[in-house]
Computed example of a mutant assay.
Amino acid sequence: MYVRALELVDFRSYQRVVVELDPGPCVLVGPNGVGKTNLVEALGYIATLESHRVATDAPLVRFGAARAVVRCAVLHDERELLIELSIEPGKANKARLGRSPVTRTRDILGALKLVLFAPEDLSLVRGDPSERRRYLDELLQQRQPRFAGVRADYDRVLKQRNALLRSAYLARKTGGSRGGDLSTLDVWDTHLARHGAQLVRARLDLVAGLAPHVAKAYAAVSASRSDARIAYSPSIELRDDVEQALLEKLAEVRKQEIERGVTLAGPHRDDLTLTLGELPAKGYASHGESWSYALALRLAAYDLLRDDGVEPVLVLDDVFAELDVGRRERLADLVGGASQVIVTCAVDDDVPRSLRGARYEVGGGEVRRV
């Protein structure tokens, strides 16, 4: 699989730009701030329906424009598919596959399989659990797009349940004798447990598949003898019947939930534990080790998607400037044979020679093949 062409209209800094890309290595070169990352961010959004830089859609639309449009032509097994996404803040986004509109935007998930590594990924190691949950869920949705619906259902139920708990909490704080009406809480518990159990089981299977790839990728990138291990850390005691375990946990913490006005159990409270040797990576890994671990997580995702039978597009956004020479060369050796590697950089010399394929200069709102 590779991206043959990318067109942006009113996306970020671009009024309109069209880029024709080649298979193999493609290097986007230009000073910082000229829009290199905007190009790969658009591809990442097509693949995951999320930006790796911002949490909302509004910043993706060029100032003064009502909407942004991203179009890309993807080649797989000599067949070309056009994917189009219209981003309209405050409204429902719209999408097309092969020029035909789709019922739901999430129906385009899986059309472009892509793994993007960027400086922001250091938060996978050093950041909050929400960053690692997002990593798992985005990968899960690329492998099995139906889980976008499961995740959306869970988030909807969680929002409703939290609103109910919050209203009861505020009623009690303002002197309400009964502390708000919680008569429907059992119903929300049932919905939360049903959707949550699907998500937990899927994440557990995903982590089991990822673990050996993470260990292998970390060893290859870092040339270290320390073992990199990952494990899923749930907020419930795991057993065969995950749904029942979640229901029992919700019953156990209900008093605290009512006192605090928030849901305290479920996959939104889970984490992906990262260890190096016998120590947790967060707080103990050096800067170089943290970079290697973050890279290993993305490379593991790439390998897992490739094991599914489709080689994804790999994007390395301003990565080589952050790596020492040894890590640069080892990373280049690992990814040099990919069907398409899109690299962004400010300085040509940061990119190892083995990845210097098609070259594009970015600047002034334009992208020029050189």
Rank of each mutant, 00 (worst) to 15 (best):
Y154L: 14
L250R: 05
V362R: 00
L136P: 01
T37D: 13
R156V: 05
I83Q: 02
R133T: 11
V18W: 09
E20N: 11
S86W: 08
N93P: 13
V18R: 15
V347L: 08
G357F: 02
E366A: 10
A265K: 02
L323F: 12
L279W: 09
V207C: 01
D189S: 08
L295K: 08
A65I: 01
A148K: 10
E257T: 03
L250K: 11
G283A: 06
R106T: 01
P212D: 09
Q144L: 09
K255S: 13
R143S: 10
L49D: 12
V40Y: 01
P267T: 12
D307V: 06
T103D: 08
R194I: 03
G363Q: 11
D240L: 07
M1K: 00
G288K: 02
Q142E: 05
M1L: 08
R298S: 04
E237P: 01
H268I: 06
H76Q: 13
S13G: 07
V370N: 08
C72S: 00
V17K: 03
V362M: 04
V18M: 10
A68V: 00
D137I: 03
H213L: 14
L21Y: 13
D128F: 05
D348M: 14
D205H: 04
A66S: 14
L297N: 03
S177I: 10
D307H: 13
